[in-house]
Design a binder for these strands. Sequence first.
DNA 1: CTTGCATGTCACCAAGTGGTGACATATATT
DNA 2: AATATATGTCACCACTTGGTGACATGCAAG
Lengths: 200, 200
Amino acid sequence: MKRNREETEKKIKEAVGRIVLREGFAGLGINAVAKEAGCDKVLIYRYFGSLEGLTESYVKEKDYFSNIAPVFPGTGEKLTREETAWVAKRIFIGQLKYTASDAEFRELLLWELSHRNQITERLAKSREEKGMQVLNKAGISGEFEGKDLAAIAAIIQGGITYLLLRSKTSDVFNGIDLSSDEGLLRIQNAVGDLIETILS
Amino acid sequence: MKRNREETEKKIKEAVGRIVLREGFAGLGINAVAKEAGCDKVLIYRYFGSLEGLTESYVKEKDYFSNIAPVFPGTGEKLTREETAWVAKRIFIGQLKYTASDAEFRELLLWELSHRNQITERLAKSREEKGMQVLNKAGISGEFEGKDLAAIAAIIQGGITYLLLRSKTSDVFNGIDLSSDEGLLRIQNAVGDLIETILS
DNA sequence: CTTGCATGTCACCAAGTGGTGACATATATT
DNA sequence: AATATATGTCACCACTTGGTGACATGCAAG
């Protein structure tokens, strides 16, 4: 065999991606990864220390944190209601579209939902910080006409996430076909309507 | 040992409950259940056929379906907007409270979200039917002022479910402390406000 | 060329997994 | 009391798991 550490590390990380996509994070195991990568498992220990180290390396490389924060004109000034509504739509619908497009990311979210460890805690914390930052900047915080905007945003964001995760194991929810573009469009429009209605 | 099949079956099913509560459905295994129940694993095969059979028996006994459908005055007549809003609040908040109160049920939801098999599919189908029934009866279907009520309900229900599942592995979401009664109350109020705002 | 190290291969370990066959015995029926 | 069967115990199987030590060898520095 050729001897090339970099290449081998790459092969291993790609193997992780394939396994996550196929079986989720629950399918990750030393033996499984080694087999999938076509290398000896001892190399995983040597190069990544442990399975946890490998997982961390894989997650880091994907860099989901930056992906999740949508870009929008941050002038720092206080936004009007219309602007906030506009920005909020972009944020939530952007989140929906991105989550719908990236199956590996969905698996990561599912992992976060079911396992608590150093990695998932760090991820949750990081995403929480980024998310709060974005929402605050967009004016989605505090109260608006007596309504708890943060809590409402939490429900909408959670709803989006749940429905997209759910689409993997269940095709229809509440009569909505989550496996079709048409269904996702209904969700998307409903998100828009919710925001519009709340902020007016 | 005393010889009593009924009692043994009960012991086994209780063991399943304890394991689910402690490690989730992922922790279920023939050996684990036998150990927890303090009996030989061969009895599980004899009495339940397989682990799947045992799981099914356990899930059936819990009868989550009936729990999830809140009771409300079903006169069959078409409801006014005010009545629909009132009923919708009761449905969603009831779902929230029940889900928050039953950790085993939350584990079941998590299992449904991450594994697709005969049992989870049956569960999903059953709950879908019951859910649609309830929502239709409550008038949460079709359009209202151009808004897709089913899609909006899906987001709210999904949001409730997600946040409650999330509370297991993450304490705070969007600045809301999901592990405290105060946080749940914020969610609860936000659900009420959402419904009120949409249906008016 | 030779030495040294990084890279890769292999064999092995203890422990756990799902699963089965052989056996003992309590309990109820005749 | 003799018998039959349901109930429970035990030993074992092949396989997978995470993990380690011993060894071979390519490659680069001296």
